[in-house]
Amino acid sequence: MQRMLIGGVAALFMARGGLLVWQGMAKQPSLIPAPPPPAAISDKLPEAGADAPAFGPPPPTPPEAPKASREEVRFNRYDRNRDELVSRLEMMGSRTKAFKALDTDDNNLLTFEEWAAATGQRFASADGNKDQLLTRKEFARTRPKTPAKPGCRC
């Protein structure tokens, strides 16, 4: 019991000594200098000199590309190798949206019969000179017909 009492008193003396050392350190001047007060911040914008030009040179204008028509954009989408001709492979290679419309039995497989029935006839009817290649004018005939809009909102 006596040891515990002596240990408690020693702990109190050590805590008091630490407190005195801490207070003594607080009264000493700091070795780190205080930062200077911030300069007055001006809300004014900088002004140009008297000999400065009023305006700089204008930016260069980009060249204007000619606006392509809807049919030219559509033709260029199919003409993958840019030879100004659409082959049967080029036309069918990018027609993924129409795949479901061509797949009549909905098995996610397009048979030759399904494909030939829908697109072969369309290609053959557009190919006026029967050379198995579509020119721009021939290709314009393959465009799907847009449905007529109703005249009124009834």
Score class of each variant (00 low, 15 high):
residue 1 M to T: 05
residue 2 Q to P: 03
residue 3 R to L: 09
residue 6 I to E: 14
residue 10 A to F: 05
residue 12 L to F: 04
residue 13 F to I: 15
residue 14 M to W: 10
residue 16 R to F: 10
residue 16 R to L: 14
residue 19 L to T: 10
residue 20 L to F: 12
residue 22 W to R: 07
residue 24 G to I: 00
residue 25 M to P: 00
residue 25 M to I: 13
residue 27 K to D: 09
residue 27 K to C: 02
residue 28 Q to N: 04
residue 31 L to A: 12
residue 31 L to V: 10
residue 31 L to H: 00
residue 32 I to C: 07
residue 33 P to S: 08
residue 34 A to Y: 03
residue 34 A to F: 06
residue 36 P to L: 15
residue 38 P to G: 00
residue 39 A to H: 05
residue 40 A to S: 10
residue 44 K to S: 13
residue 48 A to P: 11
residue 51 D to F: 06
residue 51 D to A: 06
residue 53 P to V: 03
residue 54 A to L: 12
residue 55 F to Q: 11
residue 57 P to V: 08
residue 57 P to D: 14
residue 65 A to E: 14
residue 65 A to Y: 02
residue 65 A to K: 08
residue 69 S to D: 10
residue 70 R to P: 04
residue 71 E to W: 00
residue 75 F to M: 02
residue 75 F to V: 07
residue 79 D to T: 01
residue 82 R to V: 03
residue 85 L to E: 01
residue 89 L to I: 06
residue 93 G to P: 00
residue 94 S to Q: 04
residue 95 R to L: 15
residue 96 T to I: 10
residue 101 A to W: 00
residue 103 D to P: 01
residue 103 D to K: 01
residue 105 D to C: 01
residue 107 N to W: 05
residue 108 N to K: 10
residue 109 L to W: 04
residue 109 L to H: 03
residue 110 L to N: 01
residue 111 T to C: 07
residue 111 T to N: 11
residue 113 E to M: 05
residue 113 E to Q: 12
residue 113 E to H: 10
residue 116 A to I: 04
residue 120 G to R: 02
residue 121 Q to L: 12
residue 123 F to D: 02
residue 126 A to I: 03
residue 129 N to M: 05
residue 131 D to V: 04
residue 138 E to D: 06
residue 138 E to H: 01
residue 139 F to T: 02
residue 141 R to K: 15
residue 144 P to A: 11
residue 146 T to N: 00
residue 146 T to P: 02
residue 148 A to V: 15
residue 148 A to M: 11
residue 150 P to C: 08
residue 151 G to K: 12
residue 152 C to W: 07
